[in-house]
Design a protein around this nucleic acid. Structure first.
Lengths: 243, 243
DNA sequence: CGCGATTTGTGCACGCCTTCACAAGCGCCT
DNA sequence: AGGCGCTTGTGAAGGCGTGCACAAATCGCG
């Protein structure tokens, strides 16, 4: 897919030693490994074959990914589950339980605010914002919706570095600008539009409709293949987003 | 990230002519081009440079992508907006307004059921299912929540080929099995787990927490770089999921 | 009609990622 | 202590995707 880094990655040998720059593809898989590992707690060690199966990837790929983190496996035995969890969580910075704010408590934002998958995997949603005066003050999952103009103040107080945009597309760029001004340096964008941000700010985009459209393409292709003389039903895919 | 096709792609020259097999990376970008094009309706033609900017990609990449569909541009002029929209929608199979069902109307499923981005981009959510008896009969966005056991019957009646799973992880595999049995051949999975499906069924996964974890990694990296002597603030990323 | 400006379509080279295959290392059992 | 089986870690090859740079083609204008 289409992950890319526009990073210049300047030569920085000191930093490289302290913080190995992992391939982007590897980083995208680490959370998957972590989830699989958490399901395996109780086991002491696990082989690359078993962990790869649990994470839905090739075992060679898994070993290469983990080798980039250092050697946390024992030949003939496997990987130490607890140690590996600790290492991956450290690399991903999850041990800090980062503060996250969410802007836009409409249909989707409402659900995200209550999504317990964030809390259970290393994040704290600490503030909700919206521009609609009618929504200010509303209580959602123990948080009070605040006005977007309070963003800068609250972000500073709570040391918020990550922001989630769940507004309509039309408002997203303005919100992104406000987030950047407030010191946020990572943005997860659910609005279907391209955001323009200064260097040093990371943006990841999730577009729910795009995923369906990709599936629709494969449906269309499957249908046109089976409809043709000599056409064969294709074998299945298992794809993951994010990467 | 980690998009991959486990497709065997058998030699099928007849089908290849009728339905060119596009690179997976290209397919993942087509929806993005389509969205940008819809924002440009009113213009007659558009250059690859302008469209690429609107879609957030490189212009050479855009031209190469579109060239895979055939020649719908005119040198010296640009691409015909209306024609390109029509072509991309055809390739993606969106002109059929595919029926989609959603299983799991909890926190996230509720939001997805009401998400208008699906309807506005070529899909019809025609049925909602849940296993919880307390939820059966509930009205959401004009649809009635039905029991999961009705899935096979409804799927056949409505010709549903795409299913969305928004259940807890523990229930996802069982739901996937039921979807497959009901004839669904494409699944969009929001549950944080790996699904096992037979050949011929496509699965795409969206894990909201994973996206945050990837951002967290970059935050961690940025922090460790700036803290080091000689460390430099890195330049910004703009990444897209999906592909 | 011819020329220049503009934009598409693409050959090519480079780099990243994946996958295979195997050497190196570890533990257990005798 | 030695050997055997198992698993990790990695070298190398191949494939895919990206982006540059340019040739080919079209339009408009004089």
């Amino acid at each position: 897919m289409s992950q890319q880094r526009h990073e210049s990655t300047p030569g920085n040998p000191g930093a490289a030693a302290a913080f190995p720059d992992l391939p982007e593809a590897t980083i995208a898989r680490l959370p998957e490994y972590l989830r699989a590992l958490h399901n395996l707690e109780g086991s002491d060690t696990i082989s690359s074959e078993a962990l790869a199966a649990a994470a839905g990837v090739n075992s060679a790929k898994l070993r290469k990914d983990l080798s980039h983190l250092g050697s946390y496996g024992t030949r003939g035995v496997g990987y130490d589950v607890a140690l590996l969890i600790e290492q991956i969580e450290y690399i991903l910075g999850l041990d800090q339980r980062r503060a996250v704010c969410l802007v836009g408590v409409g249909n989707l934002g409402h659900a995200l605010a209550g999504y317990d998958g964030f809390a259970s995997r290393g994040f704290r949603i600490v503030a909700l914002f919206d521009a609609d005066p009618a929504r200010i003050g509303e209580q959602i999952s123990g948080l009070t919706v605040r006005h977007i103009d309070d963003l800068a103040r609250v972000a500073a107080e709570e040391s918020i570095a990550i922001g989630v945009i769940a507004t309509p597309a039309g408002a997203a760029q303005a919100v992104a600008d406000q987030l950047v001004t407030a010191g946020v340096t990572s943005i997860l964008n659910f609005a279907p539009c391209v955001l323009s941000v200064p260097a040093g700010v990371d943006v990841r985009k999730v577009d729910l409709a795009i995923e369906l459209q990709i599936l629709s393409f494969h449906e269309h292709r499957k249908a046109s293949l089976t409809a043709l003389p000599g056409g064969r039903a294709p074998t299945g895919n298992q794809e993951a987003v994010g990467s």
